[in-house]
C-alpha cells in the first residue's frame, strides 16, 4: 500500500498520462477513416480543392469549438454562441451599411460578442446562476435582439473591408480546380487555435481553467483567481463567437441574417466532446476540438456527397454522435472512479 513510485516514468505512469489522449487519438482515427471511406465511395476527396474548401468553410466552426473548449474545460457550458454569431453579424453589417468604418465594425462585432459573454460570466460567477441557464437566457436574448434588428437578410456594402477576409489565396495552383486555396479567415482560425493553445498550456490563467474544472473548491483554497478567470473565459467565448461571425459573414459574401447560427452551439459542443474533452471539465485539449471539428466536417462532406441521406438526418446524426461520445465519457469516468 505504500506506493513509493519509482523515479523513472513507469509504464503505468505513462499509460495514465496518455490515457486522456486516447479519445483524441480515436477521433483522429475516425476522421481519417471517414476520409478514406469517402474517397473510396465518392472519389475526389484527397483533392486539394475539396480539402481546402472544407477547411475554409469550417473555419468558423473551429473557432467556436475553441471557445467552447475553454468554457467546458472549466466545467461550464456556453449555449449562446450560435445566437451571438447571428446578432453580431446582423448588427455588424447594419453598422457598415450605416456608414461606420468597415474595420471598426469588425472590431465592434467582436466586442459585442465579448459583452454577451461578460454578462453571462457575471451571472454565473457572482450570482451563482447555473451556466446552462445563464447562457440559455443569453441565447434567447441574442437571437431575439438579432430578430429585432432585422428579420430579412442584410448585405454589407460591396467595398466593405470584411469581404477581404474571404479573399481566396491560391497557395498551390494545381491542375484544373485542384488548387489549394486558403483564405485570411482560415489563417485567423489557425491563429486562434495557436493562441488558445498558448493560453491553456502556457499561462497561469489557462492552468487555472483546468484547476477550476478539476476541483473548483481546491482551486479556491489554493488561492487561484477563480472569479476573475471564470468571467474571462465567458468573455473569450463570446468574443470568439463574434470573430466567427466576422469570418462567416465574409465567407457568404457579406450577408447576415437573424437565423444564422441556429444549432451551431450543438456543433461546437459535439466537436469538443468528440475531440476528447470531458463534458464535466478539467480534462481536454484544444487541438482535440480541432480534430472534432474536422470529424464533423468529414461527416458533412459524406452526407452531401451521398445524396441519398436527406438533410434532416444531419441533425439526428450529429445529436447521436454527441450522445454516444457523452455516454462513452460517462462509462470511462465511472470505471476510473471505481
Amino acid at each position: 500500500m505504500t506506493a513509493l513510485a519509482p523515479s523513472r516514468p513507469t509504464l503505468r505512469g505513462n499509460w495514465e498520462r496518455n490515457q486522456s489522449l486516447l479519445p483524441t487519438l480515436a477521433a483522429v482515427a475516425l476522421f481519417i477513416g471517414m476520409l478514406v471511406y469517402a474517397e473510396l465511395a465518392y472519389g475526389r476527396v484527397f483533392h486539394a480543392g475539396t480539402m481546402s474548401s472544407l477547411l475554409v468553410s469550417f473555419a468558423p466552426t473551429i473557432i467556436l469549438a475553441v471557445g467552447m473548449t475553454i468554457v467546458i474545460l472549466s466545467g461550464g457550458i456556453d449555449l449562446s454562441v450560435g445566437a451571438v454569431v447571428a446578432f453580431t453579424s446582423v448588427s455588424g453589417v447594419m453598422l457598415m451599411n450605416a456608414g461606420v468604418n468597415g474595420w471598426l465594425a469588425i472590431v465592434l462585432m467582436i466586442v459585442f460578442g465579448g459583452l454577451f459573454g461578460l454578462v453571462a460570466g457575471i451571472l454565473i460567477q457572482y450570482f451563482t446562476v447555473q451556466p446552462f441557464i445563464a447562457t440559455l437566457a443569453m441565447m434567447f436574448l441574442a437571437r431575439g435582439l438579432a430578430s429585432m434588428l432585422s428579420t430579412v437578410p442584410v448585405h454589407a456594402p460591396d467595398d466593405a473591408p470584411i469581404r477581404l477576409i474571404a479573399t481566396d489565396w491560391k497557395i498551390i495552383d494545381g491542375p484544373k480546380v485542384n488548387d489549394l486555396v486558403l483564405t485570411p479567415g482560415f489563417v485567423l482560425a489557425v491563429f486562434v487555435v495557436i493562441a488558445a493553445f498558448v493560453y491553456l498550456h502556457r499561462t497561469r490563467a489557462g492552468r487555472t481553467v483546468y484547476a477550476i474544472g478539476g476541483a473548483e473548491s481546491s482551486a479556491q483554497l489554493m488561492g487561484l483567481p477563480v472569479a476573475r478567470t471564470r468571467v474571462s473565459i465567458y468573455v473569450i467565448s463570446g468574443a470568439l463567437a463574434g470573430l466567427a461571425a466576422v469570418i462567416y459573414t465574409a465567407e457568404v459574401g457579406g450577408k447576415a441574417q437573424n437565423v444564422t447560427g441556429i444549432g451551431w452551439e450543438l456543433d461546437a459542443i459535439a466537436a469538443v466532446v468528440i475531440g476528447g474533452t470531458l463534458l464535466t471539465g478539467g480534462v481536454g485539449y484544444v487541438l482535440g476540438s480541432v480534430v472534432g471539428s474536422l470529424v464533423l466536417a468529414a461527416l458533412w462532406m459524406i452526407i452531401t456527397k451521398d445524396g441519398s441521406i436527406k438533410p434532416e438526418f444531419l441533425t439526428i446524426i450529429t445529436g447521436s454522435i454527441l450522445l454516444v461520445f457523452v455516454l462513452l465519457q460517462r462509462v470511462i469516468t465511472r470505471r476510473r472512479v471505481e
Binding site: 497561469r204 492552468r207 483546468y210 473548491s217 481546491s218 487561484l224
Partner: peptide, 25 residues
Amino acid sequence: VNLCTNLSIGENVMLGHEVRGWAGI
C-alpha cells in the same frame, strides 16, 4: 486532499507559481 487530480504531480505542487519565461510557462 485539496488538489486537482486531473493535473500532474508537479503542476499541483507549482500551481499558481509556475516558472515563466518569455514564451509563457
